[in-house]
Amino acid sequence: MLTEKEIFDILSEIPDPEIPVITIKDLGILQRVEVTGNTCEIFITPTYSGCPAMKMIEDQIQEALAPYQITTIKVNLIYSPAWTTDWISDEAKEKLRIYGIAPPEHSSLDKGALTGKAKELKCPLCNSKNTEMISQFGSTACKALYRCKDCKEPFDYFKCI
């Protein structure tokens, strides 16, 4: 039987199904692993309550551990503490930017979500700050849609929550 750390390291390599340049560990979805006897429990936190990628991530976890002959693998969804964009590492944020997704700008809860204050966002393609929001809701629950007024390209922004 593998140790908790070995299992955690194996699972740390799993790419996020929506944003394959970063892993589920980089995103803070993979929380911890607990091994009791021949049972392995994995705890994951959804980014958004209804994130449809969670089922896919669960399947990827089962698949990654399949070769190791673990009798029971249980994947548990936990909601508390609530996932926050603060858990995304700086290194992962840089990978997001290179991939073309503007990383979350401010730490913790986006207070602007209520007041509607527009924030200054850098275009991940040309670095211009001359950008505007097209829609608060983007291609996935965790992103908003922006456009750059200089290079004219639309881009996704990873919303702060």
């Binding site: 309550s49 809860l109 209520l114 509607g116 809701f137």
Partner: peptide
């Protein structure tokens, strides 16, 4: 604790919903 946990998660999303409706 379970209800409080779900609420802490969901309140972040509700803020976006409320802003959308208010706009």
């Amino acid at each position: 604790a379970t209800i409080a946990g779900i609420a802490a998660k969901t309140i972040k999303e509700i803020k976006y919903h409320l802003r959308h409706a208010t706009d």
